[in-house]
């Protein structure tokens, strides 16, 4: 699996420079969350969010990267995924989180959707400098 290969190489990140990298991001996170023990529903929620956020990087900034950290403690598993780019930044984060708002002529449902799909969403953006989006998802395990 791609994630095993990357882990063996000591990598915890992937660069996003093309549409096929979005596919790679999804694949890594799908494998990783499945291995961690997330249920199918959560895996799909997380992977859908990754798809949205990776695409945002690609569409708005052209170049960026995705990094991840997995967390496991007794009875609990979690994943943290970070997307970082040096793109144009988000002028108004609250507006970006409103359903239907888009600067890219798309649906404008991505970011508000991610907020619902994940447990935590944190956005740091500097106009003209870049954007960092951090999402987290937790699950209880036996």
């Amino acid at each position: 699996m791609l994630v095993d290969k990357l882990t063996a190489q000591g990598a915890t990140g992937l660069s996003i420079t093309s549409e096929s990298d979005i596919v790679a991001c999804r694949k890594v996170i799908r494998d990783l969350t499945t291995q961690l023990g997330f249920g199918m529903t959560d895996v799909t929620r997380i992977v859908t969010s990754v798809s949205e956020l990776a695409r945002n990087v690609y569409v708005h900034a052209k170049v960026g990267e995705m990094r991840w950290n997995s967390m496991r403690s007794p009875g609990k598993i979690g994943i943290e995924i970070i997307f970082e780019d040096k793109g144009p930044g988000i002028a108004d984060i609250n507006q970006a989180l409103e359903p239907g708002f888009s600067t890219a002529k798309s649906m404008g449902m991505g970011l508000p959707g991610v907020k619902k799909l994940m447990d935590e969403l944190e956005i740091v953006s500097v106009d003209g400098k870049g954007t960092l989006v951090k999402v987290k998802k937790w699950a209880k395990v036996k």
Partner: peptide, 10 residues
Amino acid sequence: VPQIDTATAQ
């Protein structure tokens, strides 16, 4: 189709 995001839906 393994998952549908907003771009796929569009």
